[in-house]
Design a protein around this nucleic acid. Sequence first.
DNA 1: AATGAATGAGCTTTCATTCAT
DNA 2: CATGAATGAAAGCTCATTCAT
Lengths: 204, 204, 204, 204
Amino acid sequence: MPISKKTTTDKQAPGRRGELLATAAEVFAAQGYTATTVRRIADAAGLLAGSLYYHFDSKESMLDEILSTFLDELWAGYDAVLAARLGPRETLEALVTESFREIDRHRAAVAIYQREAKDLAGRPRFGYLAESQRKFERAWLGTLERGVADGTFRADLDVRLAYRFVRDTVWVAASWYRPGGAHSPEEIARQYLSMVLDGIAVRT
Amino acid sequence: MPISKKTTTDKQAPGRRGELLATAAEVFAAQGYTATTVRRIADAAGLLAGSLYYHFDSKESMLDEILSTFLDELWAGYDAVLAARLGPRETLEALVTESFREIDRHRAAVAIYQREAKDLAGRPRFGYLAESQRKFERAWLGTLERGVADGTFRADLDVRLAYRFVRDTVWVAASWYRPGGAHSPEEIARQYLSMVLDGIAVRT
Amino acid sequence: MPISKKTTTDKQAPGRRGELLATAAEVFAAQGYTATTVRRIADAAGLLAGSLYYHFDSKESMLDEILSTFLDELWAGYDAVLAARLGPRETLEALVTESFREIDRHRAAVAIYQREAKDLAGRPRFGYLAESQRKFERAWLGTLERGVADGTFRADLDVRLAYRFVRDTVWVAASWYRPGGAHSPEEIARQYLSMVLDGIAVRT
Amino acid sequence: MPISKKTTTDKQAPGRRGELLATAAEVFAAQGYTATTVRRIADAAGLLAGSLYYHFDSKESMLDEILSTFLDELWAGYDAVLAARLGPRETLEALVTESFREIDRHRAAVAIYQREAKDLAGRPRFGYLAESQRKFERAWLGTLERGVADGTFRADLDVRLAYRFVRDTVWVAASWYRPGGAHSPEEIARQYLSMVLDGIAVRT
DNA sequence: AATGAATGAGCTTTCATTCAT
DNA sequence: CATGAATGAAAGCTCATTCAT
């Protein structure tokens, strides 16, 4: 692990602004965006509510920056995986593993995303959320379809249902995952993949 | 089932009160409890905000009634399944099927539960949520452990991880499920069980 | 004078809303729009600040309604004068008299208009202010030009300067005029017209 | 006149302080004192809001310095006129001409004065505004009364009304006057005086 | 001289809730 | 049962001002 004075957060943005964003993300994740008051964020960051406005335009712009920063990083990882043009199973494994790594790095942002994305996607400012969801679907659904086509995945399953199944299964983990816990992201990914790919029942 | 003019909602309570609760549940599910204003509920129900207080003590008591009604029904179903003392696999199948039936009947309540339960469980008034979560865990985790013990389920999996996996897999469906859609709850249950038990990969 | 319980204001809008607008206009006129806090308006009206928002969307919408109501009435009067197609001198006299009547009826609104119109006219919501200013100029300037053309008014004066001179001379009166004072609007109009038309110097 | 790099403003105070005051005056005039934020002044001057406090005690003290500087100069001019003990008509002409010269030199300050003086005069710090208004009235009203007494001005006019008429006529010009425009201050004064003294109607 | 960061008071606005009618 | 009007607390945000560097 690199030498760092930060102990509380998963954000990487430097300076005061970055610290404040990390604090805000933590509080948003814990209580929900709407239920979070600016005062609570300020309390958690050790300054007064009004002082946050020296750094940010609004509560909403904090949320915006948290989510867009996270999505940028997420897509950097996903795009790298997709660009490798692996087979369907290997792609799925890589996407799942990458996802758990992102959860590990941006737990708060992921939790916020899960809770708020659906409501937010409609607002112009958060249009990139809707776009991200479309790319998301294309990536996962495409991988599954390729796998069905080449005999890697079962053909008797509704592929859209399977998509939702895999997608949700992975991301909901952000609601209980705690970085630094018993399992590394890679270990969790391995277990999840084992269940998703082979099932929990013993083979007969 | 009583004669009812209602066509839009999943609530069963009769009369105006029931209609209003159903409307409230729909709005809570769509926008989140905190972000929902009493005025919006009133608008959706066709009366003025203040008039809701003739029927209910508070916004919180609406939420309370929605969630407790749902949980009462859920546990009626779950308890019946558990009382049947089936084998682990059959119990799991029955619980999953029952869960999708509940999602079908109480979609809004389930969505609210998913979003808000964690924050709410701490408050005294909603203590039953925490209790329900404990019963929940006991039921599912117990079933999985029995299944591992008798060789029905794979022994090489982290059983707590598997519990979360199955739990999330089922309930997150409430976030996209629409009653009256292409699949019946039983059909969705069958597909989910197939994936959870046997995996999505083709057996080699 | 009609039977009326109102004693404080010049506004005619009925009901609570109208009373509140009249109070707001008075305070805006006395302290300036920006310097007026919503709390002060509420104090003057005898309710709490938040309660104003049951009647109005925002502080700005109060201002909007005050100004647009005034301008609607003003233009009703002006248009009637212009439609009569009197000679230039008679038109000028009628416009000045009508203006002092409006000042008498809408003193607060006129004072607000004087202070704030220039800044406001740029905002989309108050676009009608700019439009009104253009109509205003057309009415007054046209009358003066007609008068110069037919020999009623002196030809050796800069007509645009004369326009500003007459316009300002009339409207600034709102800053010191008090309804119910020593002079009726018609009397003030007569004196103003006497000075504007014939000057204050004794004829030699 | 001292060598100066300033080209945009009417203030004479030398150095950074003077530049800043000129900028502040411009912004105050354009948006009103209350509606002007210290940040806007700082933006316009090219430094940060806090940095202004190295030069000035407070926003109010900027306003104070702007207004008192202007009034000092104005009264230097007025007092010179009054000391000359001219006849009523010549005094009036000289006062009007001097006024337009002041508008030319201190346009922003005059505009601020017009907008804010009434509210400000009550505060102890700005007591000199009230005093100036009294001197003002004495000078103008006295001149008019002398003129009525010696037959220079018409005796059939309400002299207080005439005073307000002349006063407003002159000063409101600050709201539209732009230095460097088509008319010199002296030219505008001549036209105004022509209208005020002889009226706009053709003599019959 | 000027900056970056913060304070603290006060602002406009929102909202759950109350209550006479 | 419902409305119209209000309350009062708290929310998000603004802004003049301060101060260590």
